[in-house]
Design a protein around this nucleic acid. Structure first.
Lengths: 218, 218
DNA sequence: GAGTTATTCGAACGTTCGTTAGAATTTATT
DNA sequence: AATAAATTCTAACGAACGTTCGAATAACTC
């Protein structure tokens, strides 16, 4: 009787041994989240209406609320899932790689690959950054901070290892800017794929940070 | 009798010789635009209501419409003014400077100085990029393209002059990313001023683009 | 196939939205 | 002071918003 959207749903069947990872409910919710990502991406969170999502997903307006309790929670679910996934992938890829420069290249490649493969979700993540309030917002903010700190760690390591001189915070945020801005311009029919872009952005950024010779005149 | 907001208002008194640059109307409109910039910056264009602006500006809801015909035109006016100003300043500053690297440094400094001095306006420009439709949108888009092309010109010149190898489009958009992303993180109590940031971002970017030695391994 | 639970729906709720009509008021001109 | 013009207001319009209620349907259990 109670709506499942009020509490976190269990994602495994109750009895009958074998745990099936995705219940019907979870699959349906995931589908809705993917439609919602598209809609939020196109019209922005505030600009998109629940009726837009209803139209896009083919489900009635009221029917949607069986799966989540509010539009805000919908955005939260999208952002949390996206961030969690990208952080998890990054950690897996970094495992076993020691070289400082290579680790930064992996960071860039992971970010851009995921960004371009899930452009809509990443745009929603980048663009709708400040709209979540209170509890929702702080949880996503914590994920973001963790991701940010990983990058700071990578750069600080390189900096110490090679006695470089740059402001870590500025370097990290510049790198994020380079990468995240991509959602405003990337056109798959014109621009290269993630690997190429990652390589060239990595070149520019790493040379810029490493190159000993000052590029300034006098 | 006719509302002045439907046509572009003349900004000079009609008779009595001396042209006074700012009429009462223009001053009032400018004031409203500045309040609107603040409100759009805080809550986003879609998230901000005309009632928010009414509250912020101290003018009645209907009173606002004496100065512009729609919320969309309000955003258009803000974006157009901001872009026009930053392009004009840039052109003035580039005048007489020949050195290719110095010209790019001027571009970066001009951008960041204006960005940090008018953070709200620039956030509205960066963040509310795709919301203007049809006529409004295309005019602002043309301004943006001009600004973009200037930067392409600067980088292409440097590239030819020094026989460098990079994708101009990617380099320009990376630079814009580095600079524009600043609206998501800059905190005047923590971060340096525009000149310092421009210098360090310029260092990273120019070294990255100029440095002959590949930073890649193997 | 009856009974129970899970899912979906049409219809509406109350609120807020952008915008406007028309009256009231202030300001400028004689 | 009288007149005209410019500016601002109160009050409302219809539309769209996020959300909810309770009934209707579908899926599953026995």
């Amino acid at each position: 009787m109670a709506s499942p959207s009020t509490t976190t749903r269990v994602s495994r069947r109750k009895h009958r041994g074998v745990p099936i990872p995705a219940t019907r409910y979870d699959q349906r919710l995931a589908k809705i989240l993917s439609y919602a990502t598209e809609v939020f991406c196109d019209k922005g969170y505030e600009g998109a209406s629940m009726r837009d999502l209803s139209r896009a997903s083919g489900m009635s307006l009221a029917g949607l609320y069986y799966y989540f309790e509010s539009k805000e929670r919908l955005l939260y679910l999208i952002q949390k899932h996206t961030f969690t996934t990208i952080v998890a992938r990054l950690k897996a890829r970094l495992e076993g790689v020691d070289n400082g420069e290579e680790r930064i290249r992996i960071f860039i490649l992971n970010h851009l690959e995921y960004f371009l493969a899930n452009q809509a979700a990443m745009k929603v993540l980048s663009h709708e950054d400040e709209v979540l309030k209170n509890g929702f917002g702080s949880e996503v903010a914590a994920l973001k901070r963790e991701y940010y700190r990983i990058c700071v760690g990578l750069l600080d390591h390189l900096k110490r290892q090679r006695s470089l001189q740059f402001t870590t915070r500025l370097a990290v945020l510049s790198l994020f800017g380079m990468m995240n801005w991509i959602y405003t311009w990337h056109n798959p029919r014109v621009d290269a794929d993630a690997a190429s872009i990652a390589r060239e952005m990595g070149d520019v950024f790493l040379r810029g940070v490493i190159c000993g010779a000052k590029a300034r005149k006098s």
